[in-house]
């Protein structure tokens, strides 16, 4: 009888972890490929409004961001609380826009340049004055493709 008795329950066989590094590496590569490093540190408060008719911006490399909002708490002593424009990492004025756009153009192949989009990330509480000024400047600089950044609105209008 004991000849056929299995040695069950005496020792659990160790689970092989040899493939663990491979699995982790696959995950790692996935995240390495998807990652886009945070490109600029925000110095203004931007919480974009909500909308329903939104489209995705497909080519990230062709988008230049313009942030408009009130300076964050720690910058308010220097820059005040009036809405400001931020380009790249710095506070900027409207007159800095043409140069900023030219610099963005340099990184992009010539045939793709007409497809460039300026994405306006504007805080919802900002008034239209500064936004209109920025729009006028963009028109003067020939940057006509514009995206008003917005989040998807879930519920219907009240």
């Amino acid at each position: 009888m004991s000849k056929f008795k299995k040695k069950r329950g005496k020792t659990t066989p160790a689970i092989s972890t040899a493939s663990l590094p491979d699995i982790i590496f696959i995950l790692l590569f996935f995240f390495m490929v998807v990652t886009v490093m945070k490109n600029s540190e925000l110095k203004v408060d931007v919480s974009v409004p909500e909308a329903t008719e939104i489209q995705k911006l497909v080519k990230k490399s062709l988008v230049s961001y313009l942030y408009i909002g009130r300076p964050m708490k720690n910058y308010q002593s220097v820059y005040g609380t009036a809405p400001r424009l931020q380009l790249n990492d710095k506070f900027a004025t409207i007159d800095d826009i043409p140069l900023f756009l030219e610099k963005e153009k340099l990184d992009i192949q010539e045939q793709l340049q007409p497809l460039m989009t300026a994405s306006l990330r504007v805080d919802r509480d900002v008034t239209m004055g500064i936004v209109s000024d920025v729009k006028t400047k963009l028109r003067k600089s020939g940057q006509l493709k514009v995206n008003y950044s917005a989040r998807k609105r879930a519920q219907a209008l009240k």
């Binding site: 790692l28 995240f31 990652t35 939104i54 963009l138 008003y148």
Partner: peptide, 29 residues
């Protein structure tokens, strides 16, 4: 595995998958 984990966590933290969305407009020249 530990080294890979460390790298993985780094990339997990820095990743932002969100794409910019919004209303597209063509301004007049």
């Amino acid at each position: 595995a530990d080294i890979a984990f460390l790298l993985l966590i780094f990339f997990l933290v820095t990743t932002t998958i969100d794409v910019d969305k919004g209303i597209r407009v063509l301004l007049p020249p």
